[in-house]
Design a binder for these strands. Structure first.
Ligand SMILES: [Mn+2]
Ligand SMILES: [Mn+2]
Ligand SMILES: [Zn+2]
Ligand SMILES: [Zn+2]
Lengths: 140, 140
DNA sequence: ATGGTATTTGCAATAGAGTTGCAATAAGGT
DNA sequence: ACCTTATTGCAACTCTATTGCAAATACCAT
């Protein structure tokens, strides 16, 4: 189970598995859209799980430090979104400009390009972001 | 000259070419890095050109509406940057994680990929963002 | 050149995302 | 059950960006 596997990662860095961390993890686990901090906050409110918004921020930051969660900064969305990495490989997203729906693109086409860029720019490439936006089937 | 060409675009939309718009345009024209609003503000301060920060924001938004300026939201930079489109074609950037240097990547490798994504997701793709980060030659 | 009018500007207030300080609470090893 | 240390909630705060409004200014018509 994810929760106990994660407890280990938490303890290994002197951290503790808490009620709020369980709740955030469980929500991310069962949700298939990347969620913003306020999404997480209000979803847990609806489920009558008491958690402060600041705790949501601290929780996603811890999970990010442990490498369990990816932070997405989508273009023209004023806030970050978070999704579990668990199992899933590196991938990118497309977002509908009308309804906001976000779909995974289960591919990353940038391996070759990275080498080309390193040759041309003399940078060492460490990371990249790639995101598409447009109109989903329902909103066309 | 850029300024008079732009005056036309401004007037065509019932707008006016002003002292502050000239100053922001001239700065973007002579600078080769994408600039944030506060960059523009403080650079003009140094040049003893009086302009309020809110006017900088309003100016880049107008230039964006006219299609003269591109807004970049780079990953993990809390603020947007702006660069003139004048002459330059669609392109992407790489940023140094140490010194913040931003270099143009004079290519966009996403035309074929866009079609593939449209077929797979049934979205109509309208836009994309692509950005690399790493370590520049000096900071390695 | 002068005047009239709509646009633009600066200032102050405001909004929204995210962070920080600190006392109270709770996790978990003993 | 106890003790120590990490975590939480609340409030205050930071930072980027936007909005309302009165004063200033661009620019068109005279
Ligand atoms: Mn995803
Ligand atoms: Mn550029
Ligand atoms: Zn990728
Ligand atoms: Zn492109």
């Amino acid at each position: 189970m994810l929760e106990s596997a994660i407890s280990q990662g938490l303890r290994a860095t002197g951290r503790r598995m808490t009620r709020t961390r369980k709740a955030v993890l469980a929500l991310l686990e069962r949700t298939h859209q990347p969620l913003s901090a306020t999404d997480i906050y209000s979803q847990l409110q609806e489920e009558h799980i008491a958690i402060d918004l600041v705790t949501v921020y601290r929780t996603v930051n811890v999970l990010k430090e442990l490498g369990l969660v990816a932070q997405l900064d989508l273009h023209h969305e004023g806030q970050s979104r978070y999704e579990l990495k668990e199992g899933r490989t590196h991938h990118h997203h497309i977002r509908c400009q009308i309804c906001g729906k976000i779909v995974d693109l289960l591919l990353c086409p940038l391996k070759k390009l990275t080498k080309l860029i390193e040759e041309r720019t003399k940078f060492v490439v460490d990371d990249h972001t790639l995101e598409f936006s447009g109109f989903c089937p329902k909103c066309q």
